[in-house]
Computed example of a mutant assay.
Amino acid sequence: MSAAARKPAAERDAARTAELGARLRVLRQTREMTLDALAEATGLDKGYLSRLERGMKNPSIATVLRISEALEVPVAELFGERLAEHAVRVTRARDRLSLSPAGDSAHGIEALSRDGAALEAFVLHPAAEFSADGHAEHAGEELFFVLRGTVELRFADRGFVLEPGDCAQFPGHLPHRIRRVGAEPASALVAVARPPRERRGRGGG
């Protein structure tokens, strides 16, 4: 085989090794497992595992089996050839969970994400008035995307009037309040990326 023919094969192997490393890191972090903990569970060196996650090492079958057992995932999932049983969750519109009804003084909330998900998402139907409970504050990053109607997003010293298609992104620890503007119904997609172990709680102030 010529050098030119070997180069694409080497590049493909390097890409597969990098993908395996990235997948391993995601699976480990999803389980909130440190490299130290994985090293202890597998009997492998922490430095070796770190290089593996960075795509710098190509593991043997024995190593893959150890990691698979420690992470409690099928080997095929490590190689991206099989989805975890609950990796993809589809919620039909008819099955969407309504957490609270919409009203003039209360936000309507429909859950989109599953319990324990790293990304919490819901559809918010803002009330006509700001919540009497005061400002909402939470850990993580929030993304607020207006689907219909007009919405006011207010912070401590400024407010923003958002129309359909407008989007705001901000740290969740900033005190904020939300209300619809006008008589027409409004709705927004809200996504909150929470840090691990953060106690869950639906937002929208």
Results as ranks from 00 to 15, higher is better:
residue 2 S to H: 13
residue 3 A to L: 15
residue 6 R to G: 00
residue 9 A to E: 15
residue 11 E to N: 10
residue 13 D to C: 00
residue 14 A to G: 12
residue 15 A to C: 04
residue 17 T to S: 14
residue 20 L to R: 08
residue 25 R to T: 05
residue 27 L to I: 03
residue 28 R to E: 03
residue 33 M to S: 08
residue 34 T to L: 07
residue 36 D to T: 14
residue 37 A to M: 12
residue 38 L to H: 02
residue 38 L to C: 01
residue 40 E to A: 15
residue 41 A to E: 08
residue 43 G to N: 10
residue 44 L to C: 06
residue 45 D to R: 12
residue 48 Y to C: 05
residue 50 S to I: 05
residue 51 R to E: 15
residue 54 R to S: 15
residue 55 G to V: 13
residue 57 K to L: 13
residue 57 K to Y: 03
residue 58 N to Q: 12
residue 61 I to K: 00
residue 62 A to W: 01
residue 62 A to R: 14
residue 62 A to Q: 14
residue 62 A to Y: 05
residue 63 T to F: 02
residue 64 V to D: 02
residue 65 L to V: 10
residue 65 L to H: 05
residue 67 I to L: 12
residue 67 I to F: 05
residue 70 A to V: 02
residue 71 L to S: 08
residue 71 L to N: 01
residue 73 V to L: 04
residue 78 L to D: 01
residue 80 G to W: 09
residue 84 A to R: 13
residue 86 H to E: 10
residue 88 V to G: 00
residue 90 V to C: 01
residue 90 V to R: 01
residue 95 D to T: 06
residue 95 D to L: 07
residue 96 R to K: 14
residue 97 L to P: 00
residue 98 S to Q: 14
residue 99 L to P: 06
residue 101 P to H: 09
residue 102 A to R: 07
residue 102 A to P: 00
residue 103 G to F: 06
residue 104 D to H: 11
residue 106 A to C: 08
residue 106 A to T: 14
residue 107 H to F: 10
residue 111 A to Y: 00
residue 112 L to K: 09
residue 114 R to V: 08
residue 122 F to R: 04
residue 122 F to E: 01
residue 123 V to A: 09
residue 127 A to V: 05
residue 128 A to S: 15
residue 129 E to H: 13
residue 132 A to F: 04
residue 133 D to W: 01
residue 136 A to V: 02
residue 137 E to S: 12
residue 138 H to R: 08
residue 142 E to L: 13
residue 143 L to E: 11
residue 144 F to T: 06
residue 145 F to M: 12
residue 146 V to L: 06
residue 148 R to A: 15
residue 152 E to W: 11
residue 154 R to W: 02
residue 156 A to S: 14
residue 157 D to P: 01
residue 160 F to D: 05
residue 161 V to H: 11
residue 161 V to K: 13
residue 162 L to P: 03
residue 162 L to E: 04
residue 164 P to E: 03
residue 164 P to G: 06
residue 164 P to C: 08
residue 165 G to R: 08
residue 166 D to H: 14
residue 167 C to F: 04
residue 168 A to R: 04
residue 171 P to L: 08
residue 171 P to I: 11
residue 172 G to F: 05
residue 173 H to M: 06
residue 174 L to N: 04
residue 176 H to Q: 11
residue 177 R to Y: 00
residue 177 R to T: 12
residue 179 R to Y: 06
residue 183 A to T: 14
residue 186 A to G: 10
residue 188 A to M: 10
residue 189 L to H: 07
residue 189 L to V: 08
residue 189 L to W: 04
residue 193 A to W: 07
residue 193 A to L: 12
residue 198 E to H: 11
residue 200 R to P: 01
residue 203 G to N: 02
residue 205 G to H: 06
residue 205 G to V: 04
